[in-house]
Nucleic acid binder design. Sequence first.
DNA 1: CGCCGTATAGTCGGTTCCTACTACTAGGGA
DNA 2: TCCCTAGTAGTAGGAACCGACTATACGGCG
Lengths: 211, 211
Amino acid sequence: MTRRKISNTLALAVLGLLLERTMHPYEMAAILRERHKDSSFKVNSGSLYDTVEALVRHGWIEPVETARDGRRPERTVYATTELGRSEFVGWIDELLRRPVAEYPKFMAAVSYLGALGPDGAAEALTERAGHLVRRIEETKAVLADTVGAGKAPRLFMIEVECALHAWEAELAWTRRTVAEIGDGRLSWPEVERSEDGWTWTGPTDGEGTTR
Amino acid sequence: MTRRKISNTLALAVLGLLLERTMHPYEMAAILRERHKDSSFKVNSGSLYDTVEALVRHGWIEPVETARDGRRPERTVYATTELGRSEFVGWIDELLRRPVAEYPKFMAAVSYLGALGPDGAAEALTERAGHLVRRIEETKAVLADTVGAGKAPRLFMIEVECALHAWEAELAWTRRTVAEIGDGRLSWPEVERSEDGWTWTGPTDGEGTTR
DNA sequence: CGCCGTATAGTCGGTTCCTACTACTAGGGA
DNA sequence: TCCCTAGTAGTAGGAACCGACTATACGGCG
């Protein structure tokens, strides 16, 4: 028995679009990009067609027409079903209510920050901070050009604000950590091999052993 | 041709552990859990064995011994190679320097916050805030019990601080958004179907149309 | 007028990932 | 002593995912 729900959130985007009107997959991808939703959803043509098929299997959407425009490839146009409409809201509600564990690559790398040594770590984080600053500025420009210019209601771009907030927090942590490495508040313990695991000596912490 | 690097960060955890000493996969999983690293890495036995095999294929680690303890299943013990040791640091460096696009489920759901209506959205976000508060407190307790108690240097748990910071930011955004829904600063536009897409009227924004 | 880059629309095949399962042992309680 | 649960160690099959590819149409430029 498969997991009751489809887990790929791209399916959420598909449902959302089909609630507006019927359309074919390629069109969905184009609209998502146009509306800057491709920063919240990973829009990949392969995954998209798989996802649409999965939605059909579950009865959340259904094909309503297969048309052919000139000699372009055939297009299958889909529409939501009654079931799809109700599950859509339920799914969003659940995703909003319950935080689920995610495993961002950055967290994995931070986990082994020690491996770069104080200088290497500070340098890498400093570069990251630069990238984040740029990304934040670009995103603010997009917001100014859409919501700021009255081209879309704020609610339609709210996830962009949310992402922005998250990046700003990451930037703040990154900068703070660089500073703490610099002034020694975050120190590198002396690590030595011992008979069982590692022995380390911290600067103020005394000493201990993992496991 | 496969992507030059292994992408699953679980491989990073495996390399990190094998730099300490040789061990077998099941042991890695146990240690990762013990050290609370399972919040940064998705430790899944199926993926773990696949990952280890991939690392062997790439020559980053190699089996050094296959032992059998009593009549338990046979265990294969692995060690890093020279190549593995050097790639480890390079990989971490790259992950730290370059932010990559991630697609958290929360962002997808926020993207369709509108679908719940003001009251539904506020309620769902409020519940989320509660979960976040609990998670933050639990994590602080873990930190107090390890770094605070001198059982581990701060550097060894730095990713937990990082995650904590991210959750606190998410909590702040969530609460602010609930407040903004409450006092109308974040408003729900009146949406109507029109001949092409949707027409909406914002409270202060005037009106416009998507696409 | 022919050529090239881009847009349209989707397919295909392989890798990765994960869930569910097997099979055995150790230890504790009744 | 016998069963039950938790721990140990890993396998197998399928679903999900993604990158690379196909094929046609269209518009602009030299």
